[in-house]
Design a protein around this nucleic acid. Structure first.
Lengths: 208, 208
DNA sequence: ACGTTAATGTAGACACAAGCTACATTCGCA
DNA sequence: TGCGAATGTAGCTTGTGTCTACATTAACGT
């Protein structure tokens, strides 16, 4: 379906192709090393063509981040749908999904959370998508709360604490601050399980 | 002590001045909007001068990030020294310090954790400083563990969970994903307290 | 005090990227 | 079939990173 040849004057789906082509470049040369001209060249198109689809470089990055936020939201939604009766499992799976996605797509995560795009001065789409991703996890906690899983604890506190732990773990890993051997293969899942357990039980010794 | 006039051929402390001047620019124009030439101009110095102090733009950014990591490490160390007999308090204060620093210096935090500088291919100084900052929090947990605060829980799990929560909270706030009214003034401290409590007690209802 | 040397700053050049404008080609639809 | 909108092209201007050759100054031993 995608044109890879450059027989035609029109590319067919340049917008999407630009986003796809940008991701690997971001991954190994970073935001600063990404150039629209280089992307254009790589897609066999003139250096002005990208500007038909993105007003500027930032808008391309926003497009990528947007997809990332939507992906995170989808991960949460999927987990909710998959285990409708088990908020505990919902949270566990969504958390793992979040961590896996962020640590497996650090170039996108860096756009979402790395401060290159300020969520203040960007189109409302991005802001909404970001909030929605956050709301996805919040909804799961809310489910758990209503199911009595968390007793009388304040919902806001539960949400913020969980979100912090999940988000923090994901970013620690994607930044390479956790030993790589702990995060490769099945290690990641084990790591998440440990953190999940500790988070659920609390740090303090329990008298059970 | 600092030269502000440009009477002299030599600036006096250009290296430090560059770092200082870069920070506000980073804050409101981001990494991409920062230019060495602009900085040089602002300091009344030719566009080549910065290269006497930094091999390239990245090295300037690394210098800033380095200071940030050291600051985080110092926050942990200070907390340990201040409450040598109270690991619980150590952790609480270090956590708040971490969150305050990161959310109050997001431009620096973005350099440290935003993925522009990969911790893989950078001088060993940066890597060490980053590890040391992490180790600072780990040491506090270790204190608590030895004091029996955390009973029989695995130390590694305790460290990772705590680090995730602190780091995550800090970055959520600095990214603007927590309502600003919750984080301004005394709100920040309250927020940290809530998360700290929740983390300590665990999410699950306790039967006390 | 003085002269050498290393540190630091300057000026100019080059490559390259962002983003603008005027123009060309093609697509989709009436 | 033909026309307007969407898309791609070519060239220009401006700004930036980074190199090199050179100028100025500070530091320091004699």
């Amino acid at each position: 379906m995608r044109r890879t040849q450059k027989n035609t004057y029109h590319h067919g789906n340049l917008r999407h192709a630009l986003i796809e082509a940008a991701i690997p470049v971001l991954r190994d040369k970073g935001v600063v090393g990404l150039s629209l001209r280089e992307l254009a060249g790589k897609l066999g198109v003139s250096h002005g063509a990208p500007y038909r689809h993105f007003r500027n470089k930032t808008e391309l990055l926003e497009g990528i981040a947007l997809a990332g936020y939507r992906e995170l939201a989808k991960i949460c939604a999927t987990s909710r749908e998959r285990y409708p009766l088990d908020p505990d499992k919902q949270l566990f799976e969504a958390g793992i999904g979040y961590v896996e996605y962020v640590s497996g797509n650090r170039e996108i995560a860096n756009l979402m959370f790395g401060g290159v795009l300020s969520l203040q001065d960007c189109g409302p789409d991005l802001r909404e998508a970001a909030d929605e991703a956050v709301a996805g996890l919040a909804a799961i906690i809310d489910n758990g709360k209503r199911a009595g899983l968390f007793g009388s604890r304040n919902t806001g506190d539960l949400v913020l604490t969980t979100l912090s732990a999940v988000h923090g773990l994901a970013l620690l890993i994607s930044a390479g601050l956790v030993e790589p051997e702990q995060t490769s293969g099945k290690g990641l899942r084990m790591l998440c399980t440990s953190v999940y357990e500790t988070l659920m039980q609390g740090l303090l010794e329990r008298d059970t």
